[in-house]
Design a protein around this nucleic acid. Structure first.
Length: 377
RNA sequence: GUGAGCGUAGUGUAAUGGUUUAGCACGAGAGUUUGUGGAACUCUUAGAGCGGGUUCAAUCCCCGUCGCUCACC
């Protein structure tokens, strides 16, 4: 079964279709984040209207609440949250990095102390595969360790060794489960490996080679967007995409700002997720087009902070040309008011707009010629 | 009307006859946010009701005035 069909790419952009049990997705694409089974402030209906083709959720969070038993009772997260499109779940590997204060990494897996009730939770490569199968994920991520930046060569090397052992166990366990459950090719979720190796070319290359030997359905580029400079990130992405098989999707985890995504798309990345559009929306920061087309760097858009006093009497929408619900109906003055009185409608309206911006950007990238990058590959 | 008390940033408060640049909290204004952070943090802003007196020196002590609160009538 071929899951990914790559059209003739033009420029550096890989236009293609990724097939999943819950539908097809056009690349390059962006996944709104629904960590705990909901995109914050946005309903699945609204997501569909915005044109989102896939969303991302998180195994680590779902295991704790509502718990796998509840999800099993509902027949999976799709039916629980009423989203019937493709769904990718992160394994919890990133929480090893982001919640580093309360974790313990052993060769077998990772033990966390729950921030909810203090109980300890153990994740192993096998357990997170099983959890994601219970969740009903369309794209399953392996457990990985995401080292911080900066990190020494020695640490990155050791961390990578752990991640690669886990990847092998993940693949083996996944195949075993598919065989046991006799999953048909059209119902079979995709399994993605995650490239690590810090900012060291030797380790990154080694990581790609080891993962491709295991033959995953797609490959994520992990360990980036953790505070490294943009130039280093672009360099690492280029190393990885140069070596990854072209007939499999590539996913740059956690990236990023609009210009970061453009940079990565030009370097042959197909998939993205990031908290920026929804998180910043909750703090009043909205993204608006200033040019008709995507050009270099960040010169083609600007950020409008609706909390700013200068919008107090501004009766115009965020972006008169934006097709989103918010821009069709509401002024910046009203949005500012909603934020100043802390009405939750404000969070919803700016989240809706920012997702519209990101999804429009991806559609532009899908059909436009390669925008000029500000930086050489 | 009589008596008592109180007047310090937008709001609520603290200390003090002089090394105190009148402190704190909230608010307001601006910023940071990359496999979630409705959070957190950084920076900025803004104050002695008014008039007079005592004193080397008054936000502080005294008098008047204005305003507010409470009690009594």
């Amino acid at each position: 079964m071929q899951y990914f069909r790559l059209h003739a790419p033009h420029g550096g952009i890989r236009r293609g279709i990724l097939k999943t049990p819950h539908g097809n997705i056009h690349t390059p694409f962006f996944m709104p984040i629904a960590t705990r089974g909901a995109v914050r402030n946005i309903s699945p209906d609204e997501l569909r209207n915005l044109g989102a083709e896939i969303i991302l959720s998180n195994t680590y969070h779902l295991i704790q609440r509502p718990g796998l038993a509840v999800l099993e009772k509902h027949g999976g997260l799709h039916r629980f949250m009423r989203w019937d499109g493709p769904l990718l779940t992160d394994s919890g590997g990133y929480q090893v990095f982001s919640l580093a204060k309360r974790r313990k990494i052993t060769p077998d897996g990772v033990t966390f102390q729950s921030e909810i009730d203090g109980s300890s939770i153990k994740l192993t490569p096998e357990s997170v595969i099983d959890a994601q199968l219970t969740i009903g994920s369309d794209i399953i991520m392996v457990l990985d360790e995401c080292p911080p930046h900066p990190c020494s060569y020695e640490y990155a090397e050791q961390s990578l060794a752990t991640t690669l052992r886990w990847a092998e166990r993940s693949k083996k366990h996944f195949e075993k489960r598919m065989k046991q459950k006799r999953v048909s090719p059209t119902r079979r979720p995709l399994l993605f490996g995650i490239v690590q190796g810090g900012v060291y070319k030797k380790l990154r290359d080694q990581s790609v080679r080891a993962l491709t030997a295991l033959d995953f359905d797609g490959y994520a580029i992990g360990g980036l967007a953790v505070g490294e400079p943009r130039s280093i990130r672009n360099k690492v992405v280029s190393w990885n995409t140069a070596l990854l098989p072209s007939d499999k999707p590539r996913y740059l985890m956690g990236v990023g700002k609009p210009e970061d995504i453009v940079d990565a798309v030009q370097r042959g990345v197909d998939m993205f997720d990031c908290v920026i559009p929804t998180r910043e929306a909750r703090h009043g920061r909205t993204y608006v087009w200033t040019k008709r087309k995507i050009t270099s760097g960040n010169s083609w858009y600007s950020i409008v902070n609706v909390r700013n006093e200068k919008y107090k009497f501004d009766t115009k929408p965020l972006d008169a040309k934006c097709p989103c619900f918010t821009c069709k109906s509401y002024s910046k003055s009203y949005l500012r008011h909603l934020f100043s009185v802390q009405e939750v409608l404000g969070l919803r309206l700016t989240s809706d707009h920012n997702l519209a911006f990101y999804l429009t950007m991806m559609r532009e990238l899908q059909r436009k010629k390669t925008p000029r990058s500000t930086e050489a590959p």
